[in-house]
Amino acid sequence: MENFKKILLRLKNELSVETDNQIAEFLGLTPAAFRTRKNRNSFPVHQLTEFVLAHPELDLDLDYILGNVKTPKEKKGLEIVVNPSAIDEFDEEMEIDNLTPKEVLLVKYYRKSSKRGKDNLLRTAHMEAVLSDHNL
């Protein structure tokens, strides 16, 4: 249950709440369902991801909450990139001539989107990458 407790503590800290029942409510779970998940050491990552996506105004850092990074990100918004370290990962030499049809479609959708839509696409892609890093 150690991993569950660490995630829960970071989430409580990020949301400035104190009780498990408050977290359960944020995640759309009953207190009993949340306790059951806690007893099984099975954090409701799907509900957490949905909550983070539904509330971009809270600027929650899924990497930090899940324990992928040790400190919360700097609160700079998405003006640069969802995760500032992604700038370092950008490879200008990456081959982009052989994009799959889905990748081309994603770029087209991104370019047609408003700033808010672009931010949401980046945030969603980032969260999916984080979940993949955690094998979730």
Rank of each mutant, 00 (worst) to 15 (best):
T49S: 10
D133G: 05
S16I: 02
L9F: 12
V82T: 15
R37N: 11
T49V: 11
G77D: 02
P31R: 06
M1H: 09
N120W: 08
Q47V: 02
V130L: 07
E14A: 15
A125H: 13
V45S: 06
L99N: 07
Y110Q: 00
M127Q: 15
D88S: 13
F34C: 05
H134D: 05
L48I: 01
I80M: 12
D63A: 13
K118V: 10
V17N: 01
K112F: 06
V81E: 14
F4W: 06
F90W: 08
L105P: 04
L99F: 11
L53Q: 10
S113L: 01
K102I: 09
D20N: 14
E14V: 08
L60T: 03
V69C: 03
M127P: 07
P31G: 14
Y110C: 04
A32M: 08
K70A: 14
N41C: 02
F90K: 12
D20Y: 01
I65F: 05
V104W: 13
L15D: 05
F26D: 05
P84V: 02
V45R: 08
T71Q: 14
V81K: 12
M127Y: 15
V69T: 11
L105M: 07
T19F: 02
D119T: 00
S85N: 08
P56N: 04
E79C: 00
K6R: 11
T30D: 05
T124E: 15
S42A: 15
A86N: 15
K6Q: 14
E92F: 09
R116A: 15
A54R: 02
K75V: 10
V81S: 14
K70F: 04
L58H: 04
L78T: 14
E57Y: 00
E93T: 11
S42E: 13
L106F: 14
P44M: 00
E57A: 11
S85R: 08
F90S: 06
N83M: 07
E14S: 15
N13I: 01
R116Q: 15
L15V: 02
I23E: 07
K108H: 08
H46S: 11
N120G: 00
E2W: 03
M127N: 15
A86T: 12
M94L: 12
N3C: 00
E74A: 12
N68L: 14
S114E: 09
L121I: 15
F43A: 03
N68H: 09
K73D: 06
K76R: 12
L9P: 00
K108E: 12
N21P: 06
H134I: 07
D91M: 01
N68Q: 09
N39V: 07
T19D: 07
K12N: 06
E95H: 02
L48F: 07
G77H: 01
K5P: 00
S113N: 10
K76I: 14
N13F: 06
Q22S: 13
L15S: 02
L9V: 05
K70N: 13
Q47S: 09
V130Y: 05
N3G: 01
K118C: 12
A129D: 13
